[in-house]
Amino acid sequence: MSNVKMSKILEQLKILIIVGIMILIGQRIGYGIGIIKAIPGIILVIIVAQISLIIKAAFPNIKFPAFAWATMISFILSMPFMPTAEWYLGITNNVNFLGTTTPILAFAGISVGNKLQILKKLSWKIVIVSIFVFLGTFFGSAVIAQIVLKIQGLI
């Protein structure tokens, strides 16, 4: 557990709380969810998020991103046969899914700011190839999924 440092946790918690406030404001505007009503939910979300960061720091050899840990913990708490499911989903349902996405992408947009110059140097050929990569990986998976789901009779 030597990788888990209190100063780092506090730094992360600070950012999580700021992001939490952004989500509360954003979803009030976008989806009409009252700020007070959503506070317990956002606190619970922040706790799970912080735990996933701690787990990731504690087990650096398991190459599993904190994002996946967060999904995993939340997944376990909300499975239908878990005693926690009803309570957990009841509280966190006041945090809107799409509301959590807007701050991420705003930060993401700013964070690529120093890559724009490098991008200019990129060959136009790679730009075209990358578009085909994006299309290929997406539709490749979609076609296989379509065929298998059809064979299984699920769609």
């Binding site: 799970v48 960061l53 996946a68 967060a70 999904t71 913990i73 989903l89 959590t100 701050p103 991420i104």
Partner: peptide
Amino acid sequence: EIEFAGTAVMIALLPLGVKYGNLVGP
């Protein structure tokens, strides 16, 4: 600020990760 935003993205993603768990569980 650009550098900070890079760190913040990784952390801001986590509440979304939690919400995904909420969707997968049920």
